[in-house]
Design a protein around this nucleic acid. Sequence first.
DNA 1: GTTTAATGGGTAT
DNA 2: TACCCCTTAAACT
Length: 322
Amino acid sequence: MPEGHTLHRLAHTLDRAFAGTTPRVTSPQGRFVAGAALLDGRACEGAQAWGKHLFVTFVGERILNVHLGLIGVFDVLRYAAGPGLAVPAPPAVGAVRMRLLTDEWVADLRGATVVEVVTPEQQAATLARLGPDPLRAGEPGQDPARSLAKLARTDRSIAELLMDQSVLAGVGNVYRCEVLHRHRVAPFTPGRLVKASTWLELWDDLVDLMPLGVAFGQIITLPEQVEEAQALLAPVRADGEAQASGEPAAYVVDWQGGAEGERGRGRGRSKRPAYEVVSPLPREYAVYKRTGEPCPRCGARVRSQVVAGRTLYWCGRCQRRR
DNA sequence: GTTTAATGGGTAT
DNA sequence: TACCCCTTAAACT
């Protein structure tokens, strides 16, 4: 279920699980056997995400590149309470393209559109094609002003531009619908008519919102939920130990929630292991997937339309073009 | 048992 | 704009 927040959370979890270890790398399903052999038995140096692209680096400049696409899933589970306990690894269920395994952690990848081993040069080429990532705001090159020149000379709609990863990296269909609604932006406004200030407001909002998505493992955009999520994070952010550890504070909730690693209620013959992310917040949105229902702000019916193969949702009244 | 939808994106037309 | 790839599970028959 991948927008940028999913990949950044995953990068962090994989980094915590495998950096500094030498995992076994296999392809139970058999479609990544050659690639897995290139990584098997090599020490893992770490994992990072840019937009929706995930990279796991191994010694010898071998980099695992994963893109989950629409339906890809990368399940990371701590199946043993500690290293060296000789707990049997869980069986690979379903179409597991690649498995990373230590005596403590297992990570199963399914359904991804891109799984390949790349060189640092190839990684750089991929990154060069990406626009700024709100989850990397403040880092060199991650500047929303970069996108303004593109906006100024295109008739493509703002809804389309938000999904263009070379304009903005990491936003997908849910974040685009919701952030446009939050700012009352008419989705079909051509890029050249979007004010620079509006673009920067959208960016700033995503910079605030997306870390909540990372921290809670779900997209949070309803104003009251954003407030609640920020309140839940506040004490964690203030935690001295977390600060000292150098971890991005927004990730810390995942320690306390024990998100990955808690076994949930299995449903019999499921093709995926059943562990659940524990989140205090129900999955609710203002407009996404709410066609015909009332806009939570003005009560008008939410509209939807397929745009270039993706369903766009918006409120016809408060996002009316002016 | 079969069809469909899902928070993506590439390539052909 | 259409079609293709990846996989699962819920919603249909």
